[in-house]
Design a protein around this nucleic acid. Structure first.
Lengths: 107, 107
DNA sequence: TTGACATGCAACCTTTTGGTTGCATAATAT
DNA sequence: ATATTATGCAACCAAAAGGTTGCATGTCAA
């Protein structure tokens, strides 16, 4: 679950698509995530394992099914700690505002 | 220079380190970027080529040197179009504000 | 309890990736 | 002119990535 794991997990289009699917509807089973894909179930299993070890997806067992849940935290972490570094100008001011919004309760 | 190119370029720790170096000091030559690395110059050349084709780095020739310049646009694009999608709650409100700040001249 | 369904595990294969070595070329300094 | 510096190009190589097939296991329904 290092930064490197997250970047490498995001490097593959199939895995980003799986995250997209979970973003549209969270908590899908393996078979549901496989539906309509041009890939075997085993391939999807491997992709999901990589997403898990990057902590981008967590899994919960329900009977004989494995339900998958997206975890946005690592993505946000990267956005904060890594991508933010490359933003300049008024985006830097925005970053300060972002911190302010996050530190307190400004819903 | 597709989204996939950018994600894949960012997937390697050596390439992220090269971007870090350029972020600390922009416009370095190939030899400068190689200094102190546990890698041959040719390996660095290949990494820089990948960063170029993802449009993350642009190159300018000066005499016999190749100067490398970081381009933050693709990183910002991903932050906007892809990572922002996975942010929720007050971060969503922030996104709207961010758009507002970028569309006009609010320096 | 038995068949169907959902997933797990492992071996295997091909292509891509990250890296190397060796030599060629272009520009600068002496 | 010539040696040195900075980079370019190509072949090669080991390991990792992405995927497959085949079979095993666990769980639910009839």
């Amino acid at each position: 679950m290092t930064e490197d794991d997250v970047f490498r997990a995001l490097a593959d289009a199939s895995r980003r698509m799986l995250l997209d699917r979970l973003h549209r509807r969270d908590g899908q089973s393996l078979n549901e995530l496989c539906a309509g894909l041009d890939m075997t179930r085993q391939a999807v299993t491997k992709h999901l394992a990589i997403l898990q070890s990057a902590n981008l997806v967590s899994v919960q067992r329900r009977g004989r099914e494995r339900l998958h849940f997206i975890n946005p935290v690592p993505i946000n972490d990267i956005a904060e700690r890594w991508i933010g570094k490359f933003q300049r100008g008024h985006l830097r001011a925005l970053s300060a505002l972002k911190k302010f919004l996050e530190e307190d309760d400004h819903e």
